[in-house]
Amino acid sequence: MSLIEELTALKASAVERINAADADIEALRVSLLGKKGELTALLKGMKDVAPADRKTVGEIGNDVRQIITALLAEKKAAAEAAQLEAQLAAETIDVTLPGSAHVVGQPHVLQQIIDEIEQHFLGLGFEVIDDTVDSPEVETDEYNFERENLPKDHPARDMQDTFYITPEILLRTQTSPVQSRSLEKHDFSKGPLKMIAPGKVYRRDTDDATHSHQFHQVEGMVVGENITMADLKGTLLSIMQALFGEKHQIRMRPSYFPFTEPSVEVDVSWNEVTPDTKPEDIEWIEVLGAGMTHPNVLRMDGIDPEKYSAFAFGLGPDRFAMLKYGVDDIRQFYLNDVRFLSQFNRKGN
C-alpha cells in the first residue's frame, strides 16, 4: 500500500473513531496526532517517497492532520457543552424556597409620620427646631403656659392637665413653648421665621385606647410682615395633602386656643374630593388646631403685633398614624411590639 493510500485509510479510520469516541478525546488526539501517534509514524515514511511525489504526499498529509484536528476540536467542544449541561442540570435548585433571611430595621411609625412632615416643611423653607436647648421636654410654667397667654388662673388651663415637677417646672403639655424660644433668637433681618418643632409632650391623663400620657406634636409657626390666615389655610392644605393624598380637602372651623386668635380646628376629608363630590358626602375628621398667633403672645416674645403677623398650628403624629393606618389603640405606639413595628415597612411608599 502506498503512503497515500495509508494516509487515506488513516483519515477514514480517524473520522470513524472520533465520531464513535465518547470519553477521552485527549487520549485519542495523542494516539492520532501525538509525537508517537499514528500520523507521525506514517509521515516518517516520507523519506522513502520519491522526491517528485513528496510535495503531493506532504499536502495530503497536512490535509489529513487538519481534518483530524478540526474534528477533534469539534468533538471536544461538543463534549464540554454536554458536560456543562449535565453540571447545570445537577445544580438545579428549587428557586421558590425562601431566600436567606436578612434583617432590616424600620423607623417607628410615628417617626415615619414626623419624617414626612419634616420633609414637607423643609421643602417649604422651614427650619426644624428639635434640640434640647430650644425645644426642652421639661419646661417652665412661664414658657409652657404664661408666654402662651395662659396666666395661672386661666380657665383653659383645665384643658391641659399637667405633670408638674415644681410649681414652676413641668413636663411640657404642648410643643408651643418652642415658638417663644425660637422667636427670641430669630433675626428678622434675615427674613421671616418659618419653623416646625416636632417632639414629645405629656398630659396628666390615664392611659387608655384614645388617651396617652405621652404623645407627639409638631408645632409649626410662621412670623413675618404679611403673614395671613389665607397663608395658614394654604400651608395646612399642602401638608394634609402630603400626608393623606392630593385629593383630600380641608376645612377650618372656629375654635378657641388662648395663644391664637382667630383660632380654628381643622378637619381633613376622609374621602377623596373631586369637583363632582357633593358637600354632604364628604366625611370630615378633626385633625389639628391652628390660628393666627395671639398679639399678646407676640408681644411677650418681643414682637410688634402691629408690624408682624403670624400663624401657628399643632400637628398630632399619633392621631395621624391612627387615622392613616386604622390603629385603634394609641398605647400600641409605646409598647414596641415587634409584630406591630415591623408592619410599617413600605419604604417604597
Binding site: F121, L122, G123, L124, G125, F126, E127, V128, D131, K190, G191, P192, K194, V222, G224, E225, N226, I227, T228, M229, A230, D231, K233, G234, T235, L237, S238, R251, M252, R253, P254, P262, V264
Partner: peptide, 24 residues
Amino acid sequence: ARLYGYDNLPVTLPYGPTTPGHLT
C-alpha cells in the same frame, strides 16, 4: 373671619424673602 366664612378664605402660601429649609 368666621362670619365671612373660613371656607371663603383664599388659599395661599406665605410669600416674601426666601428662607432655605435645611437641617443642622
